[in-house]
Design a protein around this nucleic acid. Structure first.
Lengths: 347, 347
DNA sequence: CTGAAAGCGCTTACAG
DNA sequence: CTGAAAGCGCTTACAG
């Protein structure tokens, strides 16, 4: 009967219009509001009897602690900001859902900020400050001033696939330079002599690193090198491939594309429009390891980023720094692994 | 000189360890805390003089109103929860970034919840309650109980690509049924007689609607129909295609795949492993309009979802209901548009 | 237009 | 183990 009464009461309270607070629970459970609060705090000392009363009342009221209020008083919002640019991150969905999964394990949630242009960072950071995030994962380019702003506010910051060699910030990065370099080394070993290096957007540090890795390996050797400027897109890769193939000056036997999507565009164009025999006459390589690279029609030779381990590392580093703000910055560089596909022989 | 002094002071305050509050700004500006608050509220009445003093002080202190505190007192967090399942939503990245863009215009931010399995909804909703979101966009399947839970708490809810015909909830949806039906009608008109309908995961309502649209159009006609159960993945589509082609009982001339990725897997398998002539001997159609559908090698005949308009509608509907909770539920159904590609003639 | 004051829903020392 | 009380940083009537 007592329970019945409580249920009725609880329903009434709930229907007053607003959700139950810890005071409502306290009243129903017949304990103090402090006691209710303790029951929802891990590791607090509460007697079994009190806990039972509170649990019952909370359940009947549908009570959940208000994370906003908790954040205000404790200084911990349990929210991290994730800043991500669409264009430059091709594994965008996977990275984001992996991040979410790893953070969720620690009961931390993601406030999402997507950037159209890297130049929007300032505008976005203003919003980030307002939301009192506990930390930031950034897959976007920051200026030194923007990095300092995070430091000044005591907000831990970890970059994803952005290296700041001259700056002391934490980052997790795939070794784009070395990955591309070793891929090109393989192409050289297989006897390729005339290279096209197709870069991504000029403002993408990831593309720059990959391009530099390729060029560094080729420089000084008796090979032909053409650099063309892509934008990571399929369409532009097709156009550039046509331009190169139509030019009387070049007769390439290897296309080094700084991402998989461009490699696929290049491949389609070469096969369909130029009836090229791949990899016999022309080799094509990409970078990233997107799903399509493994499709029957492509079986692309490329470099796989160890996405899961990278995301795990980023989350771990950020959480550590939220707990211990004094921790020094740390850079973690992960090697990519070559996928030996059918579009290039690497010997 | 006065400014100089303020700057020094401000720096000192900032370096005390914590960020500036409205009280800090008030002290520096020589006004009350209420005045500071008003300056950051749109449409509040503040004199030009006060505003100038406050703006100056705020700038020198790097002050930004604390959205958490604001949310607590005002009951508006300016955060919406977005629940999204990975597997079932193939336009995942585009939808998410479009949502983010549209919400950002209204200064609203997205707290992201990704679901591995649709069954995780309960666990996730608990977190959603805690964060006092102003509303929810759900691209996941809810039970009636879960829908009621949102209503009880007065949290507006809009479904994205989920229809609840028997329930009064708001939703934005592509007309999957009609899109697939008209695609199949086109295939029939072109003379196809033996159909394979490849569905997605059984628990995906989107796939179910598409499958039903296809079957409804075919039922009762003098055509052969085989239904196979896919899971929206490339790999499984390849296996299923092999099974069908190796079966002595069937000799299909049309594959109706309920998403583009499966259509691509089907296409690759048919061309590469069975040397099929497409679309002469066999037609293949997909659904969604993913980027790869437009690649030279595929040029897929498929149905495009009007993603941008759908997202816009979802955002608009949710914002309206946040402002006016009493607004009745509304269902908006958008027609898809056929992409006439090279993998099927529709006449 | 302005300021003093109450209060949003919590956490956390502090006594008992 | 428990409860009374202060306080997190705001917004918002309420007087003036």
């Amino acid at each position: 009967m007592k329970n019945k009464t409580r249920d009725v009461k609880s329903t009434t309270i709930n229907l007053e219009g607003k959700r139950a607070t810890s005071y409502d629970v306290a009243r129903v459970a017949g304990v103090s509001q402090s006691a209710v609060s303790r029951c929802f705090k891990a590791g607090a000392s509460v007697s079994a009897k009190t806990r039972a009363k509170v649990d019952g009342a909370a359940k009947s009221l549908g009570y959940q602690p208000n994370a906003i209020a908790r954040g205000l008083i404790s200084g911990r919002s349990n929210i991290v900001g994730v800043l991500i640019t669409e264009l430059t991150n091709l594994n965008y969905p996977q990275v984001l859902s992996q991040l979410n999964r790893k953070f969720a394990e620690k009961d931390i949630h993601i406030l999402l900020f997507t950037l159209d242009k890297e130049s929007d960072v300032d505008k976005v950071l203003e919003k980030v400050w307002q939301y009192q995030v506990d930390g930031i994962i950034a897959a976007a380019q920051f200026t030194e001033v923007q990095i300092s702003a995070c430091e000044d506010r005591g907000i831990p910051l970890v970059f994803y696939n952005r290296l700041y060699p001259q700056s002391t910030v934490s980052s997790v990065c795939c070794d784009h330079y070395e990955g591309e370099r070793s891929l090109v080394e393989g192409l050289l070993n297989s006897g390729r002599k005339s290279f096209v290096v197709m870069s991504g957007p000029v403002d993408s540090p990831v593309s720059t690193a990959r391009t530099q890795g390729a060029v560094a390996q080729l420089k000084g050797l008796a090979v032909d090198i053409v650099e063309v400027e892509g934008d990571y897109s399929y369409q532009r890769a097709c156009s550039l491939t046509r331009e190169v193939m139509n030019s009387a000056m070049h007769n390439p036997d290897a296309f080094v594309c700084t991402n998989d999507i461009m490699a696929i565009g290049c491949l389609d164009t070469l096969r369909i429009e130029y009836k090229a025999n791949i990899p016999k006459d022309i080799s094509v390589v990409g970078f990233d390891g997107v799903d399509a690279a493994a499709w029957l029609n492509y079986d692309l030779t490329t470099v796989l980023q160890p996405l899961e381990r990278m995301v795990e590392a980023a989350v771990e580093m950020l959480l550590e720094r939220i707990e211990q703000p004094e921790l020094p910055a740390e850079k973690r560089l992960f090697a990519g692994s070559v996928r030996h596909g059918a579009t290039a022989q690497l010997d």
